[in-house]
């Protein structure tokens, strides 16, 4: 009984997500690309960067990258804190 419920949950989740993606645009043909075209056309002029992805990562969405670096820092602190030696500062 309980197993059946769990299996039904997984299958229903699968089907709902699949239904959602079924109404997404066709693979390879984005519906809209305003923002990304802006990046491709303006990144070289505004940030003097050949690599558009880097210009997004460090300039247009630099705050995300700061957050990402903080996440890694957080994880390092967490791991080191969990494995800290007892009785040592």
């Amino acid at each position: 009984m309980k197993l059946g419920v769990k299996i039904a949950i997984v299958l229903l989740l699968f089907s709902f997500l699949l239904m959602g993606l079924g109404f997404m645009h066709k693979y390879g043909v984005p519906l809209k690309s305003d923002m990304d075209d802006y990046f491709i056309n303006h990144a070289q002029k505004e940030t003097a960067t050949n690599n558009v992805v880097t210009s997004i990562v460090f300039d247009y969405r630099g705050f995300d990258t700061l957050g990402e670096a903080s996440v890694l820092f957080t994880a390092v602190l967490g791991v080191v804190m969990i494995f800290r030696e007892a009785g040592k500062k």
Partner: peptide, 13 residues
Amino acid sequence: NSAGVIPLMNMGV
């Protein structure tokens, strides 16, 4: 020698 602060940020990261 382009891209302003981006290479420096790259190095920091």
